[in-house]
Design a protein around this nucleic acid. Structure first.
Length: 209
DNA sequence: TATTAGATGGTT
DNA sequence: ACCATCTAATAG
């Protein structure tokens, strides 16, 4: 297939060292799953080269991060805090284990279903304002781990918007929830978008008193 | 008074 | 990370 700026000829084929560029390009993409369409507004890039201590693949291949080492365009889903799920799209080349974490988005279609799945959201902008919220809205479970997002065989399909997000509308900052590599500004979001999750510097749980 | 936005503490 | 709860700010 041949998009104006392609799924498989741009970010999919980028070297893992350019995963930050892949992340930038994914802003604005549409995520379609289970009757809900979300416009991606916030992402984070992770390199698996061993130079990125924040990456799950940093210390090598394990049962959990297995799919990160596979081909690009597949979902890497992991559980956090024993309760919530987050999803990455594997980028780069086989064996390199680069990935882009899907952090937040704006619900474009399927508002009724989204509101039902995220009853706690007070405003529509909060429906998918966080990686685990995004997963709830899209109703993706652990079984989606390893599935493809580009060949139509998986529960989630990604499609590029008519045009890439303008560079002047993309802002960058340190990634959320990581204690190392704070100097690496690999979190990207669409400037001023209300669906972007609020950044809070990671702080160890407060001591008593 | 009623609604909304922001901050805090708790849970897993 | 999410959520319930509280407080402050705001609107009618």
């Amino acid at each position: 297939m041949c998009f104006a700026w392609g799924v498989n000829e741009t970010w999919l084929g980028l070297p893992a060292s350019a995963v930050d560029e892949a992340a930038r390009r994914m802003l604005g993409w549409h995520l379609d799953a289970n009757g809900v369409v979300v416009r991606l507004t916030e992402v984070e890039a992770y390199s698996g080269l061993g130079e990125d201590p924040a990456s799950h693949a940093h210390r090598g291949r394990t049962a959990r991060n297995e799919v990160m080492f596979g081909p690009a365009g597949h979902l890497y889903i992991y559980q956090i805090y024993g309760r919530y799920l987050c999803a990455n799209i594997v980028c780069g080349q086989v064996g390199r284990a680069a990935a882009v974490l899907l952090r937040a988005g704006e619900v474009l279609e399927g508002l009724d279903a989204a509101r039902e799945r995220r009853a706690a959201a007070r405003k529509d902008a909060d429906l998918a304002a966080g990686p685990a919220k995004l997963m709830q809205v899209l109703a993706l479970g652990r079984d989606a781990n390893g599935s493809s997002v580009i060949d139509g065989t998986g529960p989630l399909t990604v499609t590029p918007p008519p045009a890439p997000a303008p560079a002047e509308l993309i802002e960058a900052g340190p990634r959320v929830g990581v204690t190392s590599a704070l100097d690496v500004a690999w979190r990207f979001w669409i400037k001023g978008d209300p669906t972007v999750s609020v950044y809070r510097r990671h702080v160890p749980r407060r001591r008593g008193s």
